[in-house]
Amino acid sequence: MSASGLYNEVLMDHVSNPDNNHEMPDATCSHEGINPSCGDELTLHLRLGDDGRIADASWTGTGCAISQASADMATDLMVGKTPEEAREACALFERMVRGEERDPDVLEEGLDEASCLESISRMPARVKCAELAWRTLDEMLANEADGGSGASATEA
């Protein structure tokens, strides 16, 4: 890995200048995710549009740079997707951080900037940080598909 590797400019830009780190008063659903062992705490917010697609996504909470940047990239990526497409992206991210999908074209195509977190698959202690937002999103969308209530929580 290069000197700062994972902590590259793309990731650090999401840490310093996050796009989606804010509350969402008109959210359709919110879901909290925590990593008890690291103390990462994120709440993901989504607003579904009339066309059934994700119209807006944001996150709030505290944690390490990896969990926060990953949440920012995840919420960037979700906008415009149907819940099914969003869950497919979450599944692809999960495969990437578990080291099961390494094809850069597939990752770039499916995850856009979040593909820069590929090297986390070689840092097992940090996988939980990276996947927290994606797991939380996936849980929230699964709950929604089941007709679940607005607010809920996931423990990684």
Binding site: M1, A3, L6, S37, I66
Partner: peptide
């Protein structure tokens, strides 16, 4: 302002091994 896990990961990239956590 920097989470200890980020500190430890970045130190590891400099070949410095410390513990971070609770």
């Amino acid at each position: 302002g920097i989470h200890p896990h980020d500190v430890a990961s970045l130190l590891d990239m400099q070949d410095v091994a410390i513990r971070a956590g609770h």
